[in-house]
Simulated scan of single mutants.
Amino acid sequence: MKIVRRLRAHATQDGDGVNIHRIADFTQLSLDPYLMIDELKSDQASDYIGGFPPHPHRGIETFTYILRGGFQHQDQMGNVKDIRTGQVQWMSTGFGVMHSEMPLASEDGAMHGFQIWLNMPAKDKLRPAKYQDSSNQSLPYFDNGAGGKLTALAGSWLFAGKTLTSPLNQLTAQAAIADVQLNAHGTANLALQHFEQVVLYIHSGELSQQNLTQGQAVIVDSQVAIELTGGEEGAGVLVLAGQKINEKIAHMGPFVMNTQAELQQAVADFQAGKFGQLAL
């Protein structure tokens, strides 16, 4: 595995005082087509109980993955869904979305999950919004027999000779997202040469041979085989792959467009009520 760049998540807050760790790049776009990786991981309800009250988005796709606990999602399209442990959710916001995400704690009060932002190409930024989740479907997974298991969260994957395709397979930029779980000293090999971008985020344990621990991420050379080995306590690795969009962006809060004029139009459309509203 050839590491191009190392990154570490930093502590911040979002929503109604929710404590998260974030990796983001809205300027150099080194994660392209990804913009941001937010991880919420806590055993204390005070870290997340405020949730994410109603707010807008335009020009991005959001992808949510829950490892423990859950959130209730509601949007102006009429979707009201509980996203719980092991489930995923995708929104292609396009022209605009209004939504809220409020916490559903596990029995022990623990919460662990991700929200990932992906950019959309200019040609798609004003198309109608789309929504999909896995609440009524199972996500495919495969155990390679060497202490490694891959769950296909989005897109299609070839793992240990097995093709796995998630029911969520229409993400922008041909993006594919997987969770690789490694036992202690377990191994997993990934061949992702057909992607231009590959990012690994360690969310649990550590990778022994790369000296990477939870909360760290690496951008790797997609043209070089990726070999992962779990540490003494194993590892959990989020794998984000996709094709680069290669477009400059303009970013302000929940809006990601291509020019400042488009950002101003997004604000004006939101203030004019064109994003709709939640049926509370």
Rank of each mutant, 00 (worst) to 15 (best):
M1S: 14
K2Q: 14
K2C: 03
V4W: 02
T12S: 14
Q13Y: 14
Q13M: 11
D16C: 05
V18C: 07
N19M: 03
N19W: 01
N19Y: 03
H21T: 07
A24G: 08
D32L: 02
D32M: 03
Y34D: 04
L35V: 03
L35A: 13
M36R: 14
D38H: 06
K41H: 14
K41S: 15
S42L: 12
G50T: 11
F52Y: 14
P56L: 06
E61V: 06
T62Q: 00
F63I: 05
Y65R: 08
Q74Y: 06
Q76S: 14
G78N: 01
N79S: 13
G86L: 00
V88F: 02
F95Q: 12
G96Y: 06
M98N: 09
H99L: 01
S106W: 07
G109F: 08
G113C: 05
W117Q: 02
W117R: 01
M120Y: 09
D124Y: 07
R127L: 14
A129P: 09
A129C: 11
Y131M: 04
Y131L: 04
Q137L: 14
P140S: 08
N144V: 08
G145F: 12
G147F: 10
G148D: 09
L150E: 09
T151Y: 07
A154G: 05
A154M: 07
L158W: 09
L158T: 15
K162F: 04
T163M: 08
L164G: 13
T165C: 05
Q170A: 07
A176K: 14
A178V: 13
D179V: 05
D179K: 11
Q181S: 15
Q181N: 15
L190W: 10
Q193F: 09
V199C: 11
L200I: 03
Y201L: 10
Y201G: 10
G205R: 07
L207S: 05
T213H: 12
G215P: 01
Q216W: 11
I219Y: 02
V224F: 01
E227Q: 13
T229V: 13
G230F: 04
G231E: 04
A235Q: 01
A241G: 04
A241Q: 07
K244P: 03
I245Y: 05
H251L: 00
G253Q: 07
Q260A: 10
E262I: 00
E262Y: 07
Q264M: 15
F270G: 00
F275P: 08
G276K: 06
A279R: 10
